[in-house]
Simulated scan of single mutants.
Amino acid sequence: MKTILTALVATTALTGAAFAESHTDTITVGITQNNVGVDSYQTTYEQAFIEAAEGMDNVEAVVLDAGGDVARQIAQMQDLIQQQVDVIVIWPTNGQAVVPAVRAASQANIPVVVTNSNIAEEGFDFIASFSGPNNVQQGASSAELMCEALADDGQDPSEATGQIVQISGQPGYTTAIERQEGFEDRLAEACPGVEILETQPGDWNREKSQRVMENFLVKYDQIDGVYSGDDNMGVGALNAAKAADRVGEMALIGATNFAVGYEAMAAGEYYGSIYQSPVDDAQNALKTAIAVVNGEEVPFLNYFETPKITRDNMDEFSKPVF
C-alpha cells in the first residue's frame, strides 16, 4: 500500500454502483481532512487511517489536510477530482460550504464518503454514505449526564434544577451544530428545570475555551454545570474553573472523551463524557469507502457506537490515546 501525504485536500460524491466496474485492481482513496493540527483526536484519526490503509494490499491512499480552511479544501477537492481517484473521503471544514464541491465530484462519477461530521442535507443526494458518530445522539446523551449530575442524592434526574453554560464547537461546523442541537433539545425534555444561561463557541480549542469560561465565571455568580462539545474544550473550561477556585460548584460534561478528560474524571473533577474512538472513526470510514468502490450496499448513515462514560464505569473503557 502506498500512502501519499500532501498539503492539499478534497471531497466528492455519488454512489458506486456503475463505478465499481471501472476501477483497477488498486483502489485509490483520497481523503480530505478538516484540520489535523487543531487537536489530538484528528491527529490520531489520520494516523489510524494511514495504518488501516497500509494493512490493505490493494489500496493507495492520498492523505490531505485542509487546515480548517474551506477554500483550501475546495481547491484540494478539485485536485483529487482531476487525479481521478476511485473514491473520496471528506471530513468537511464546513458542512454547507463544501456541498458544491461534493456535487462536482458526483458529476465526475467519483463516489464520496463523508466522515466524522456530515454535510448539509441538500448535499445528501451527492454522497454514497456518512461514516461517523451520531452527533445529535451524543449531544442528547450529554444532556442526560447533565441531568444526572445536577440531581440531588436520591432525586429523579428529571427533577434536577440549575443554571449552566455551554461551550460549543466551531461555528458552521456540522458536528458542533448537531451536538448543540441534540444537547439543547434533550435537556429541555429530560430536565426542564435546568436553564442554559449562555452559549459561546470554543472552536474545539482548549485555550480559547478557557478564555470563554473565564468570561462566564466573571459574568455569572452561579454556574451549576458546563457542557462542552468535546473534552478538549471541556478541560479548557476546567482549567478556568480551577484558576478561579470554583471547580467544586459545577458539573463538567463533555463529548468525545479525550485522555485529559479521562484523567480529570478519574480525579473527580469532571463528571462525564461520551466515549468516541478516532481509531474506530478512521477504520469505519476507510471500510465504508472500500465497500462503496466494490459496489457493496452500505447504510447511508453508517454510525459507530459512542457510549456514555463517567467515573462510575470508566474502568470499562481504555484511556484514550489522544
Rank of each mutant, 00 (worst) to 15 (best):
Y45C: 06
G30E: 00
A48L: 03
L14C: 15
S22E: 07
L14E: 14
T6N: 10
I4G: 08
A13V: 10
D25I: 00
D39V: 09
A52E: 14
E46H: 08
V38K: 05
G16I: 03
S22L: 04
L5R: 13
D57T: 11
E46D: 12
V29R: 00
E54A: 10
A10P: 12
T43A: 13
T12A: 12
L5K: 08
A17G: 11
E54T: 07
V29K: 00
F19N: 07
M56F: 05
T44R: 15
D57R: 04
F19M: 12
T26W: 02
D39I: 04
I4S: 06
A18E: 12
T43Y: 03
T43V: 15
E46Q: 10
T28D: 02
T28V: 11
I4E: 12
D25C: 04
L14P: 11
T26A: 04
E21S: 15
L8H: 08
F49G: 02
G55Q: 08
I4N: 04
H23G: 03
G37P: 06
F49D: 02
N35L: 10
G37E: 13
T26M: 02
D25R: 02
G16N: 01
E46F: 12
E51L: 03
G16M: 06
F49P: 00
T6Y: 09
T11D: 15
D25L: 03
L8W: 11
I50N: 07
I31D: 01
T43P: 01
T28P: 01
T6R: 07
Q33G: 12
I50P: 01
V36W: 00
D39Y: 05
G37C: 07
A52N: 07
F19L: 07
Q33A: 15
Y41E: 03
G30A: 05
I31W: 09
T44Q: 09
I50T: 07
V38E: 13
D57G: 10
E51R: 06
A13N: 10
V38R: 11
E21C: 07
E46N: 11
T32S: 15
V38W: 02
H23D: 02
T43I: 10
D39Q: 09
Y41C: 00
V38P: 00
G37Y: 04
I27Y: 02
T6P: 03
E46I: 13
T12L: 05
I31H: 04
S22D: 03
S40W: 12
A20C: 09
E51I: 01
T6S: 08
Q42C: 09
G16P: 02
T15P: 13
L5Y: 11
S22A: 13
N34L: 08
V38H: 06
N35F: 08
Q47M: 07
